[in-house]
Design a protein around this nucleic acid. Structure first.
Lengths: 237, 237
DNA sequence: CAGTGGTCTAGACCACTGA
DNA sequence: CAGTGGTCTAGACCACTGA
């Protein structure tokens, strides 16, 4: 399985196309090579490139139309269900490039309301990060997060351009329960600036609190431009 | 797309296996027919049955092991946090008063896009209701819904000030699967008027499609003023 | 060893789109 | 019309598992 599938021709073709999509070589909506061109380029049979393309289509990375061609899928089409999923993984799984810009990373004194939500003493120090996540260079999410220092004492020492807070906290804490709310609202002036949108543009705001069995870990306010983010999901009974 | 893929050999094989799994003919963990057996049974080539099985594997319905065989996948319940809950019940459970105003309730000719989503012939008649739900007199949700007449022939005869479409459809159809998306956007001019909000006010828009095992039941666009609606949920791993 | 799935090939016919 | 993707065939070689 190690080198078998990596060396499999259909997997090589698929990998090549995924890389091109991630690097932005094919922008969303761009016409991608036809099956015939890929057959010539990789010296494989058409069934082989067809499989690679069909799987990319199933993964939502390309769109195909008979008689027309294959096109790079538009950005941020699909998000996960309401599981807590690392945004980095989510973007990579779409074959796109994730980048994080850290605007704040420091300790702050918690006001009464925040302290109550995190279960710490009012006025005590809590950690805060303000990070904007980009997908292929487009701002996708503004993440404003408070962290209970007791749960992650080394939180401020992390490099969040290399790992996400979600990923890091998953690793160092024992997640027990999560609670979230979703609403539509306007961004704050700062969020509008950071996301490059207007103050009157609607945003999808997810507020999420996570807990260990005994304490609150973190509170995050995740703001997404409404124009480019859709939560999707489905279920079967 | 209509009869092409339905008649496609790989799709017929896939359908046959899916039916067997749904009916319980192959219990979870049971050994399923080998590719060679299916080749003989359906008189198709091995690549064709291989595609059917590979797609079932990708969908999580079967598990395959080289050298061993194909097995019916164990049941894995994907419980979604976004349950479909009747708005009437939800409001009553908060101890408030629910009222519905029916603005439209009639048959319409379906355009191509709508017909495709509902799985009916383009131009055929579908049912439509446009209802505004109030909580203690405040507009809470604008529900614009299309219904497949084949699933609920008496839909237009109902009094939706006394029961909700969601409740009624739950009773008369066998819900099998649901699909939804959530986004933040602006209301249409009509929706803004009905909800008594400005056209620039952000709204939480849920688009939901439900299905029986074989057909689409309904498509609903549910628009909530962002200021007064929050989706909430939580989970414990 | 016989049986299984994983994968590939070199053709083929077709429906569709747009010039 | 030439070009596209959708699908199928009848073979092939291989790695793997279990008797």
């Amino acid at each position: 399985m190690v080198s078998t599938s990596a060396a499999a021709p259909y997997a090589r073709v698929k990998e090549h196309l995924k890389n091109g999509l991630a690097s932005g070589y094919w922008a969303p909506g761009a016409l991608m090579p036809s099956e015939a061109e890929l057959v010539a380029q990789f010296a494989v049979s058409r069934m082989t490139v067809n499989r690679a393309l069909r799987e990319l289509q199933a993964e939502g990375l390309v769109q195909r139309t008979q008689g027309v061609g294959t096109f790079a899928a538009p950005l941020h089409r699909v998000s996960s269900t309401l599981t807590i999923r690392d945004l980095h993984d989510e973007i990579e799984s779409r074959g796109h490039r994730h980048a994080a810009v850290v605007h704040q990373q420091r300790a702050e004194k918690a006001g009464a309301a925040l302290a109550a939500q995190l279960g710490v003493a009012s006025g005590s120090r809590v950690f805060r990060t303000l990070i904007v996540h980009h997908e292929n260079g487009v701002p996708l999410q503004c993440e404003d997060r408070y962290v209970n220092p007791a749960c992650a004492p080394h939180y401020l020492d992390q490099d969040f351009t290399r790992t996400t807070p979600t990923h890091y906290l998953f690793e160092v804490t024992a997640l027990w329960r999560a609670q979230y709310s979703i609403e539509s609202s306007r961004p704050t002036a700062q969020e509008a600036t950071l996301l490059g949108i207007g103050e009157h543009d609607p945003c999808l705001v997810v507020t999420r609190r996570t807990f260990t069995r005994t304490a609150a870990i973190t509170i995050a306010r995740l703001v997404h431009p409404g124009s480019c983010y859709v939560l999707e999901g489905s279920f079967e009974p």
